[in-house]
Nucleic acid binder design. Structure first.
Ligand SMILES: [Mn+2]
Ligand SMILES: [Mn+2]
Ligand SMILES: [Zn+2]
Ligand SMILES: [Zn+2]
Lengths: 139, 139
DNA sequence: TGTCAAAAGAGAATCATTCTCTTTTATAAA
DNA sequence: TTTATAAAAGAGAATGATTCTCTTTTGACA
């Protein structure tokens, strides 16, 4: 996504357009493996050495609030962020912190149909994600 | 699970049987809604007022290591624990921190068959859980 | 019963995240 | 354009869940 487009999205969400916000958005999108705040800050500082930690956290909160990024659920203490907005699933490595996206339209349809028919009593489903835990082969 | 049985399980896992460990196990099992360390400590102190915070954390780590409890993935800073060992899914409230179990054998079979046939390239699946986000109706 | 490695306890330390306060800036009105 | 101003950024302190360190206690086994 180019800078101009990011600006437009920020504006549309009612967020002031600042260089810091553009940098944070670019970082999360570029570091496309569900980065921590720490790795986002590290990445941004390569080209913007003085950005404040607090700013990054505040921007990430604002983005989460507005649905511009999502938090990824983990069992760890450090939050992770995701710029991929379309609902998708995650492959979690059972040995490392690696998390990869898993998109599968066929699976989504199966789940959608299953829950449309079956439902869950006393619960209104808004989103369904799979956490697929295992080991990455190769790489 | 009665005390004697907990003792047996601890022994089988190679863990020394201590009153603290039994208390922690009982707390996690009794507080069956994926409690935080804080709520576990609070619960235990009602009958065991002097247990140390560090002990509870260390016991929870040991239990996690040995597979006696599981950590539950969330988007929050506080870890949550689960004494239900059989693989199951979770209903997450999108407004509160409530997390409930969702067991569904039929669904498990569908998923099992789906992934047995389709597989995921370069990934060996060990476990699949659904995070079902939405709203609890009533209660 | 004595031995001893493991566990518990107390409290300090850690560190990811949040907060507070000041300065800067994006935005829009004049 | 300049100006006003609320919002955002920055610096650094504070917070709080969790971990660590060190000492004391204890469960397990001989
Ligand atoms: Mn914290
Ligand atoms: Mn923390
Ligand atoms: Zn993702
Ligand atoms: Zn559960």
């Amino acid at each position: 996504m180019k800078t101009e487009e990011i600006s437009r999205v920020l504006f549309e969400k009612g967020l002031k357009v600042t260089p810091q916000r553009i940098a944070v958005y670019e970082a999360v999108a570029r570091l496309n493996n569900h980065p921590t705040a720490e790795s986002i800050i590290k990445y941004i500082r390569k080209t913007y050495p003085n950005i404040s930690t607090a700013t990054v956290y505040k921007v990430l909160d604002a983005f989460t609030e507005k649905g511009l990024v999502n938090r990824v659920k983990t069992e760890k203490d450090m939050m992770r962020y995701d710029a991929v907005l379309e609902s998708h699933h995650h492959l979690y490595c059972s040995e490392t912190d690696r998390i990869e996206d898993y998109h599968d339209e066929q699976l989504d349809n199966i789940l959608k149909n299953y829950f449309e028919e079956k439902g869950i009593s006393d619960f209104k489903v808004e989103d369904i994600k799979l956490q697929i835990v295992g080991k990455f082969l190769k790489s």
